[in-house]
Amino acid sequence: MNRRFTEFIMKGLMLLSVATIMMVLLYILYIVASKGLRSLSWEMVTSLPTGGYYLGKEGGIANAIAGSLMMIVAATALSLIISLPTALCINFVMRRNGRLARSSRFMFDVLFGIPSIVYGAFGFLLMMWLGVQASLLGGTIAVALLIMPIMVRAIDEVAVLVPSDLTEAVFSLGATRYEMLKVVVRQLRPGIVSATLLAVGRGIGDAATVLFTAGYTDSIPVTPNDPAATLPLAIFFQLSSPVEEVQNRAYAAALILTAMILVISFGVRALVKYSRK
C-alpha cells in the first residue's frame, strides 16, 4: 500500500509540475501577445521613429526590423562559411572519434557556453583594434562569433549520424576526400538548414552581443559602417522610456521578435520531420 501511495503522490507532483510550467509559459505568451497586439499596426512596422528614440512619440520600429534582418543574414552567412567546413573537418577529415576530434568537440562545447556579453565585449575590442565604429559591421562580427559554435554543434550532431559505410562506398569508387564531402553535404542538407535556422533564432534575439557593437539609430543603415538598430535593443531601450507611445513600440517589437522565433521554430520542426521521411 505504501508503494502505491508513493506512486500516487509522485504522479500528482508530476502533473502539478507540468500544469504549473505550462501555465506560466502560456501566461508569458499571453502577456507578450496582448501587449504587442494592442500596439501593433501597419504603420508601426513600416515607419521609422521620429523625434528621438527615447522620447519621440511618432513612428514605428522599421529601423530595428531592418537592422536585425540585415545583421542576422550577414552574420549567419559569415558564420556558415566557418562552421560548415569545421563541422565536416571534425567528422570526416580528422580520425573519427580520435583525440583531435574529441578535443575539438570539447572546445566547441566551451565556446558554446561562453556568455554572449563576453562575445560582445570581445567584439568591441576587436572593432577598436580594427578601427571600426559601433556599426552594422561590428554587430555582424559579434553575432557571427556568438552563433558559430551553435552552428558547429548543430551540424556536428547530424554529421555524426552519417554511416561510415557511405563514405567508404564513395571512396571505393575512387573519389577524393573533397569529392566525398560533396556527397556528404548533399546528404546533410536538411540538417545544415535546420542548424542555420537554429543559429538565426539565437542570434536575432540576443541583446548583449549587439549592445556595444552595433550602436543604435533611428534610421536604416545604408553602408556597413553605419550604426544599426536591432529588435532586442529596441525592446530594451524603449521599455524604460517614460512615454507610453515609446513603450508601445517596445511591446510591438517583442511581439514581432517572438513571432519570428515561432516561424523559425516551426520551420526547423517541419524540416526535421521532412528529412526523416
Binding site: L25, V32, P232, L257, S265
Partner: peptide, 19 residues
Amino acid sequence: PVIDLLAGIPPVVYGVWGT
C-alpha cells in the same frame, strides 16, 4: 513544439514579462 518554441524565445522578451 511548445517547449521548442519557448526555448527559442529571446531573453529580452522574458525580461519584458518579468518587468
